[in-house]
């Protein structure tokens, strides 16, 4: 297994975190959160990858054919579902924030402090 996918994981994670930390727009910030989560998809799929293996559908291939790990694919799918729920909720919050504060800059939301 090559190290390359894991370098991509670290890069995507770092870029996403940098985006969240420096963002001045809530929608941008939420998209950066999705980028952070995308790093987990690559990680999961990278963990289960086998060179030269086929997709894990044993419908018309012999049972002993090397296949990539189907468990991580199920995990990634669950991960996508989680992301859909969290993102939908966060975007709904962003819409409300725009209505109530008149801005989407996280540094301008000054209701809570101390």
């Amino acid at each position: 297994m090559s190290i390359f996918p894991f370098i991509v994981v670290a890069w995507v994670l770092a870029v996403g975190l940098y985006g969240i930390i420096t963002s001045r727009h809530l929608v941008h910030q939420i998209v950066c959160l999705i980028v952070v989560q995308s790093s987990t998809y690559i990680l999961l799929l990278g963990v289960g990858y086998r060179t030269g293996a086929v997709a894990p559908y044993f419908y018309d291939i012999p049972p002993n054919t090397p296949a990539v790990d189907p468990v991580v694919q199920a995990l990634a799918l669950t991960d996508v579902v989680v992301e859909a729920a969290v993102t939908a909720l966060l975007l709904a919050f962003a819409v409300q924030a725009h209505k109530r504060f008149g801005t989407l800059d996280p540094e301008e939301l000054r209701q809570l402090q101390g």
Binding site: L90, R100, L112
Partner: peptide, 16 residues
């Protein structure tokens, strides 16, 4: 206003 800001802070930090 408060609940929206609180929920955003809560959700983003915990998701990360």
């Amino acid at each position: 206003r408060g609940p929206i800001q609180g929920a955003l802070n809560f959700a983003i930090t915990n998701s990360v």
